[in-house]
Computed example of a mutant assay.
Amino acid sequence: MNPVIEVLAASEVDRLEHLWGQLLGHHSRQAPHLAALGAVRTPEESWRLRRGQCLAWLREPLAAVLVARDANQLLGYAVVRVLDAPGSWQWGDRVGVLETLVVDEEVRAAGVGRALVGAARERLAGEGVQVMKISVIAGNDGALGFYRREGAVDFVDTLLMPVAD
């Protein structure tokens, strides 16, 4: 599959709701251990919050929503941003962040994710960014394998801990 990759305008962000709902369901199935910290949000509430977050990101100068489509069908999307990188490694002054990558359940493993990651890498490289950070929910071994095949390496393990009993 050779999807067309393009930048989605902020005014069209609601086109992503269906795919976000698929990702929410996927995450809840892949990470049932997180239910001990709190229930999964409803799809409506989750989308409302993510939509607001996405619109806030899109106000940043180098942020973008990249969509993959075939004709008029939306196959997936990636949200990419650029942040300051004042860390311990010499990666330049900025680091890319892949905030979200979603591929429609019906076309997974057909190259859509690879095309979106490639477009994100190309966009970031064009801005002089050397490294892209990617977070994967614990338990989503398929996503870890995918990113590692694309050249990603382990960097940070993030843990959650309840602060009250």
Rank of each mutant, 00 (worst) to 15 (best):
G128S: 10
E106C: 00
G139F: 05
V107E: 05
E122L: 15
A125D: 14
V103P: 04
E106D: 02
M132P: 03
L98K: 11
A143V: 07
G111F: 02
R121Y: 05
A109V: 15
V112P: 01
A109N: 09
R123C: 02
E105G: 13
D141K: 09
I134R: 05
S135F: 15
G139C: 06
L124G: 08
D104R: 05
V136R: 01
L124N: 06
M132K: 00
R123F: 07
G126N: 02
Q130L: 15
A110S: 11
R114K: 14
E122Y: 05
G126A: 01
V102E: 00
K133V: 11
R121D: 11
V112Y: 03
I134G: 01
E122D: 07
E122M: 14
D104L: 12
L98I: 12
M132A: 08
I137T: 13
A109Q: 08
M132S: 01
A119C: 08
V131F: 14
K133T: 15
E99S: 07
A119K: 03
Q130K: 12
E99M: 01
A120Y: 01
G126M: 06
R123W: 09
V131Y: 11
A143S: 11
E127Q: 12
G118M: 14
A125M: 13
R114Q: 15
V117K: 03
D141G: 13
A125H: 11
G126C: 04
I137P: 01
A115I: 09
A110V: 11
A109W: 06
V103S: 00
A138P: 14
E99G: 07
M132F: 01
G142Y: 03
E127T: 04
E106Q: 08
T100H: 00
A120K: 01
I134F: 03
R108C: 07
V131P: 10
R121C: 11
A115L: 09
Q130F: 05
D104V: 13
V103M: 04
L116A: 09
L101R: 05
L116N: 06
A119P: 08
E99A: 09
D104C: 03
L101E: 12
R123H: 13
E127N: 08
L101H: 07
G126D: 07
T100M: 00
V107A: 04
R114G: 09
G111P: 02
R123D: 08
V129H: 05
G128M: 05
E122F: 07
M132H: 03
A143I: 13
E105Q: 12
